[in-house]
C-alpha cells in the first residue's frame, strides 16, 4: 500500500541528501518526493509517498524523526487532506487527431501548453489517480515523454483534530 508522509524539515543544505540517504540505506521505497519552502522560510515541507506495509511505514516515520533536521513527521494517509500532482505529457498528434485529443482533455481539465507539427504537450493537475487516468487515456496516441512533479499534500483545516 502507498502511504503519504508530510514532513517538516529545516531548510538547510544537505537535508534532502540525509533523507534520500536514509531511504537508500534502510532499503525503503520512495514512490515520490516533493520539497519546497513553507510559509516560514526557515523550514521546508516534503511530501513523501512510501510504498510498503504498515510496519515499514512506521519505521520510516520513526527513522525520519531521528534525523536532527526533521522537525515533524505526519502520516497523512488516513487524515483528511488535499493532494495534487502536476504532469506534463508530450503526446504524438497531428492535424488528424488533434481535435479528438482536445475533446479528451476537456474531461480531464487538461490544457495544451505546447504544440508542434507532430506532437503536443498537455498539462493537468489532480490527484494521483487522475494523473494515471489521463496518461492511460492518451497512451493509444503514443506518449513521447512524461514528467510528473510527485504529489504534494496538506491536511485539511479540521483534519488535525481527528
Amino acid at each position: 500500500m502507498k502511504y503519504t508522509l508530510s514532513v517538516l524539515v529545516e531548510n538547510r543544505p544537505g537535508v534532502l541528501t540525509r533523507i534520500a540517504g536514509l531511504f537508500a540505506r534502510r532499503g525503503y521505497n520512495i514512490d515520490s518526493l516533493t520539497v519546497g519552502r513553507t510559509e516560514d522560510e526557515r523550514y521546508s515541507r516534503m511530501t513523501i509517498v512510501v510504498d510498503g506495509g504498515q510496519d515499514i511505514v512506521e519505521q520510516v516515520a520513526k527513522q525520519l524523526h531521528k534525523l536532527i533536521d526533521v522537525i515533524k513527521v505526519n502520516d497523512i494517509t488516513e487524515v483528511p487532506h488535499v493532494e495534487r500532482e502536476l504532469v506534463f505529457i508530450q503526446v504524438k498528434s497531428d492535424s488528424n487527431n488533434r481535435g479528438e485529443i482536445m475533446d479528451l482533455l476537456k474531461i480531464f481539465r487538461g490544457r495544451v501548453v505546447d504544440l508542434s507539427k507532430n506532437s503536443m504537450i498537455v498539462e493537468t493537475t489532480g490527484d494521483c489517480g487522475k494523473i494515471d487516468a489521463i496518461i492511460n487515456a492518451l497512451s493509444p496516441y503514443g506518449i513521447k515523454e512524461v514528467v510528473r512533479t510527485g504529489k504534494i499534500g496538506l491536511i485539511r483545516g479540521d483534519g488535525r483534530k481527528n
Partner: peptide
Amino acid sequence: TGITMPIVKHNYL
C-alpha cells in the same frame, strides 16, 4: 560530511 552521513547521529560542515 557526505561520507559519514549514514554513520553519525548528526554532522556539520
